[in-house]
């Protein structure tokens, strides 16, 4: 996967960008209000965007669909968020202190309140993992819980 640069925009949201294999620079801003801005950087002046396309949640779903993403999971997560519940894909950063530890060692339920519904690593997937399952760096976990529990989990597994 391409390297994704993350930049926090105080008061606005989060900006993530990467360079395509063809050399174009693309980015997405996720704003607090849920709007997403699709950014295409200018090749002549890489400090600016050639075009900025604002997408509301429906637009984002359509775009994800066109790009071959799974629309159902997106819809499920919106539904769940309405109930105050979040389902999220959280990456275990390779340089995270948590990388390589087991779910039990990390006491994830106790410390974050979030549950891990599955661990995905390479082609392997462990649905409903027990406390003995190791979280290797670079793996992705599917986390379920209250919004802030999932946020705490993301922090724990982050770099």
């Amino acid at each position: 996967m391409a390297e994704i640069d993350e930049t926090e925009l105080p008061g606005v949201g989060l900006r993530r960008e990467f360079t395509t294999r063809g050399g174009a620079r693309l980015g997405v801003i996720t704003t607090r209000t849920g709007r997403r801005d699709l950014l295409l950087y200018d090749e002549d002046d890489p400090d600016t965007c050639r075009s900025v396309v604002p997408l509301d949640e429906h637009d984002s779903d359509v775009l994800v669909d066109l790009l071959g993403g799974d629309k159902v999971s997106g819809a499920a997560s919106t539904l769940l968020q309405l109930e105050g519940l979040a389902i999220d894909w959280v990456r275990v950063a390779p340089d995270s202190a948590a990388a390589g530890a087991t779910i039990g060692d990390l006491r994830i339920r106790t410390r974050t309140g979030a549950s891990i519904a599955a661990v995905l690593h390479g082609d392997e997937s462990v649905p409903g993992p027990g406390p003995e399952v190791v979280l290797p760096g670079g793996a992705t976990v599917v986390a379920v819980g209250a919004l802030d529990s999932v946020a705490r989990l993301a922090e724990l597994l982050g770099p």
């Binding site: 926090e8 925009l9 105080p10 008061g11 960008e17 801003i29 965007c49």
Partner: peptide
């Protein structure tokens, strides 16, 4: 300032985090 950045489509620009930091 934040409305200008948004209206002018500059949220993605490289200089924008610096501007927002100054505001904060």
């Amino acid at each position: 300032v934040s409305k200008l950045l948004d209206d002018l489509g500059r949220l993605g620009n490289r200089e924008t985090p610096a501007v927002l930091s100054v505001l904060v």
